[in-house]
Write a protein that binds this DNA or RNA. Structure first.
Lengths: 345, 345
DNA sequence: GTGAAAGCGCTAACAT
DNA sequence: ATGTTAGCGCTTTCAC
C-alpha cells in the first residue's frame, strides 16, 4: 500500500509545451489537425510529465467509457468445473485490450445479484455487455434488454420475450454432435448411446438434437441425462449399461461427462474402444488428453468465441452514433467444430 | 444491441422534488443532514425518474472510483489448468460487491502487457489493485509499486526490490506440506518422495521447504521436480520410481501433479495406498475426488483467500485519507491449511 | 491550424 | 437544514 501522487493534467502539459489545452487534447487523441512540429513538442511534454488522461473527465464529456461488462451467471454454469470460463475470458480480454477497452467482470449468484447487475448496466457505466447466459429460463437476457445496453451473448440464449433478436456467438453444437455420432457410425457401431448435458442449457439441447439427427430411430433407453459433470457422467453411464448392456458406443455431451463414463466402463470391465467407443465434446486439453484412453472429442475454439464476442460488440458500438450501418448491426455467429481423434473412438 | 436513452441528471431530480441539487446529492449519498419529509420527497423523485448517479462525474470530483483492478499474469501461472483462478475471482467478487466496488480484470501475457497494465494502474482509474504474482522474478510487483497504487498480492511475491513491504494473502504452504509429510510418517512410511511444483513460484518453494522440514535427511534422489501439471507429475513419478524403486510414499505439490503420479503408479502395477501412499495439495474437488483412488490432500480455502485479499485492500483504502491508522495499514495474512483424508494415504 | 470558452454531472465548501 | 457556487479535467464548438 503506497501513497498516490497527484497526477499532471492537460493544463500542465499545455503550459509545458507552450500551447493551449485544446491542442494538447487533439494530440493526445491522435493529433489530427495539428502540425508536425507542434505534435512533437506536445508529445515530449506528455512524456516528460508522465501525463495520463483522466478517464472520468473524458467520459463525462464523451459519454463513452472504453469499458465493457462481462456478466457471468456462475452458479448456473459449469464455470468452475472446467477451464471454459477462463479461456473465454482470455479471448475477450485480448480483443478488448486491442481496442483499449477495459473488462469489468460481474459475477452473479442469484436474484439479488441480478438486480445489482441490472442497476449497473442501466447506470451507463459501460459501453456494452458480454453476457453468458446458457440457461433456458435465465432472466438475464430480458434484464439486459431492458437496461438498453448493447449486448452480445455467449452461447445461444433461451427463448425469452425479447431474446429473438439477440446477438450471440455459439459453437455449432448440433453439427458437432452430428459429426461425432457419424464418426461412431463410420466405425461400425450400431448401438450408440448419448449422455446429455444439463438440458436447461441450449448447448446440451443442441447436442442432443444433433445426436437425434443421425440416430433418428434410437431407442429412448439409449439416451441418459447427465449434467456436464464427471459425476453425472458416471451415474448416466451406469443407467445406460443397465438398460442396454449391448451398447457399443457412447457420445457424451462434454469431456468431463465422458471422463466419468470412462471410469464406469473400466470399472465394469468394458474395454475402450474395443467394446465401447467413447467420444466427448469440447476438447478440454487437461481432461481429454489425460483420460485413459485419451479422448476422441469434438473440438470447439473457446478462446476464439470469446474474442469474437468482443469483436462483435465493439463493431456494433462503432456503428452507432456515426453513420448508422457503417459498423452495421452485427448478427449472430456460429463457429464450426472439428473432430479430434484420439484413442477412445 | 439497443439504443441507450438519455439519463436524468441530479438537476432533473432537484427540479422535480423542488429542492436544490445539493440536497438531492446529500440524499443520494445517504441523506445525512436532511430532514425526513424532504428525504422522502427526493427519494420519490429519484424513483420516478429512474435516476442513477453518473459515476464519471462523481469520480471526477471525489477522486474515488469504487473500482479495483485484478491483475493476473496468466501464461505464467497454472491459471487454466485448474479452477484456482475462478475460485479466487469468486471470493474477490463477493467481497467487492458487498462494498459496492467494481472488478476490473487485467489479464497479461507478456512484456507488452506489463507496460499497458502499468499505464493503467498509474492512470488512476482504480482505487487499488489485487495482483497475482506467483513468479519469483515477476516484474509486476515492482511495476505496481512504482505505479503507486495500493495493492494486495495473492500469494507471497518473490523478493524483488520493493517487495519486502508488500501486503499479501497466502496459504500456509510450508505448514501444510509439513502436515502432509508427517501424516505419511504417521502411516509408517519411511521412503517418502516429493514431487515439487514449478520452483519459480513461491508456493512450490514453500511446500518443498515444508517437506524438508520433516524429512531432514531425505536422499536427494527422493525429490523430483514437477511443474504443477499432470504431465509433470507423470514424468517426475517415472524418474522417482527409477531412482528409488523402494519408495513407499509420495507427497505431490498439488492435486494435478498427484493425479499424474497416480496414473504412473497404476501403470507400473503399484497399488495405492498399499504399496505407495500418495498425498496431494489444494483439494481441488473436481480433481481430488475423481482420482482413483480418491486423493488424500492438503486443503486450502481458495475462495476465502480471494475474499480476504479484497477485504484487506478495501480496509487499507478506508484507512487512507481519513484519520490515518483508523483502518490501519493492513499486514499480510497466511491462512491455515487442513489435511483431508481420502483413500490414497 | 490554433486558441478561448462553454459546459459534461457531480460534490463540497461556504453562506444563509 | 438547505441553497449557492466553484470547480474536478476533459472535449468540442466556435472564432480567429
Amino acid at each position: 500500500m503506497t501513497e498516490t501522487a497527484p497526477r499532471p493534467t492537460l493544463e500542465a502539459v499545455a503550459a509545458r509545451a507552450g500551447v493551449s489545452r485544446a491542442t494538447v487534447s487533439r494530440v493526445v487523441n491522435g493529433g489530427d489537425g495539428v502540425r508536425g512540429p507542434l505534435v512533437e513538442r506536445v508529445r515530449r511534454a506528455v512524456e516528460e510529465l508522465g501525463y495520463v488522461p483522466n478517464q472520468a473527465a473524458r467520459s463525462l464529456v464523451t459519454k463513452r467509457h472504453d469499458a465493457v461488462a462481462v456478466v457471468v451467471a456462475e452458479p448456473e454454469t459449469r464455470v468452475f468445473a472446467d477451464p471454459f470460463f477462463a479461456l473465454q475470458l482470455r479471448g475477450i480480454s485480448k480483443e478488448l485490450t486491442a481496442h483499449d477497452s477495459q473488462l469489468v467482470l460481474l459475477l452473479t449468484e442469484g436474484r439479488a445479484d441480478h438486480a445489482r447487475v441490472g442497476r449497473y448496466l442501466a447506470g451507463g457505466h459501460v459501453d456494452g455487455a458480454l453476457v453468458f447466459s446458457l440457461h433456458l429460463d435465465d432472466p438475464l437476457p430480458e434484464l439486459v434488454q431492458r437496461a438498453g445496453v448493447p449486448t452480445v451473448f455467449g452461447g445461444r440464449p433461451g427463448w425469452g420475450e425479447g431474446t429473438r433478436s439477440a446477438v450471440y456467438v455459439d459453437s455449432d453444437n448440433r453439427g458437432g454432435a452430428r459429426d461425432a455420432v457419424r464418426h461412431l457410425v463410420g466405425l461400425g457401431r450400431r448401438r450408440i448411446a448419448h449422455i446429455t448435458g444439463a438440458l436447461d442449457q441450449t448447448s446440451a439441447v443442441d447436442r442432443l438434437d444433433g445426436f437425434r439427427d443421425v440416430m433418428v430411430d434410437a431407442a429412448p433407453g439409449l439416451i441418459a441425462e447427465g449434467d456436464f459433470t464427471p459425476a453425472g457422467g458416471e451415474r448416466a453411464m451406469g443407467e445406460l449399461l443397465e438398460r442396454c448392456p449391448d451398447l457399443d458406443a457412447v457420445f457424451a455431451a462434454n469431456d468431463l461427462t465422458a471422463s466419468g463414463a470412462l471410469r464406469v466402463l473400466r470399472a465394469q470391465g468394458r474395454r475402450v474402444p474395443e467394446d465401447v467407443a467413447v467420444i466427448g465434446f469440447d476438447d478440454m486439453l487437461p481432461v481429454a488428453e489425460q483420460t485413459d484412453p485419451p479422448l476422441t472429442t469434438v473440438r470447439q475454439d473457446i478462446e476464439e468465441m470469446g474474442r469474437l464476442m468482443a469483436r462483435l460488440l465493439l463493431r456494433g458500438l462503432r456503428g452507432r452514433g456515426g453513420e448508422p450501418g457503417v459498423g452495421g448491426t452485427p448478427s449472430s455467429v456460429v463457429l464450426p467444430t472439428t473432430l479430434v481423434r484420439r484413442a477412445s473412438a
